[in-house]
Design a protein around this nucleic acid. Structure first.
Lengths: 141, 141
DNA sequence: GCGATAAATGCAACTATTTGCAATTGCTAA
DNA sequence: TTAGCAATTGCAAATAGTTGCATTTATCGC
């Protein structure tokens, strides 16, 4: 991540939040992550260095980090939500309901839709890491 | 619903499932519903006539009805999943993350995207009742 | 520094949903 | 009709995630 701790602290303070040790540890865990991680992954990773942390703090912090745009959240239907650093290439997912396979979809594929929603509905879609369910090539009967 | 009980029974049997009293009651509750209903709504409605029904059966039956295409399921971010008869006009939702407002979006708005996914990824998106999060006109700062 | 105030935490309880399992039910074929 | 087998059920326990609340921690004006 190019963002420094100071940058993040500033983002938080701009919204009236504070930087705390717990948040620093979660931030570090997110920072070191690659690809999708679950709240449980983050919990395990933080807990190794900060044993007193609770699950509620993990969830609350992850929501916060999403709010300031540092991570995105997405439910790929596997029973647990996945988190993802926002600075890794923006992308979405095609999730096959039969085989469970996941294909990445570039942000730009959705641009025309976002554009249409902006124009026709005055709705600004958040560029959130989205999951589209259906069937992949192999699983279409 | 134009579908008769016999039609549904046939759809179930085609997949190796059976029509049971519990399923008939859930079906009836779905049939009488308008717009979005939660599993809890269905549970309450069925329970009034069939007190021994359990929540697991409700959930399992709703999943089944989705599988045979009678209902669609969607998570509008309100903490509980909403179910919707598939024969009511297909639509999707624009959910405002600030005010919680929900605007309906016609199926056809997504057609170009489905088309692109079919062509470029050979992926057949299921026409599932989708939620797109973002900010509505009033809530854009 | 010191007290007031607000934010953040951990814990325990709660919500919605899913799952494992033993018991029940319902086809099917002899 | 009955045995056998698979599908279905209810229940209780598990899961992911959220929430209320009392306590702790930080910040700010004095």
């Amino acid at each position: 991540m190019d963002r420094s701790l100071a940058d993040t602290t500033r983002s938080l303070e701009k919204l009236g939040y504070r930087m705390t040790p717990q948040r620093m540890f979660v931030l570090r865990a997110v920072d070191e992550s690659r690809g999708h991680v679950s709240a449980d992954d983050i919990f395990a990773s933080v807990r190794a260095q900060f044993p007193r942390i609770s699950f509620s703090t993990i969830y609350r912090t992850l929501d916060l980090l999403q709010e300031i745009g540092l991570i995105t959240k997405s439910d790929l239907g596997a029973g647990r939500v996945q988190y993802h650093r926002a600075d890794e290439a923006h992308h979405h997912h095609l999730v096959c309901q039969r085989c469970g396979g996941i294909v990445d979809l570039d942000e730009q594929e959705l641009e025309p839709l976002w554009e249409a929603l902006r124009k026709r509905y005055n709705f600004k879609a958040c560029e959130r890491h989205m999951a589209i369910f259906g069937n992949c090539r192999q699983c279409q009967s």
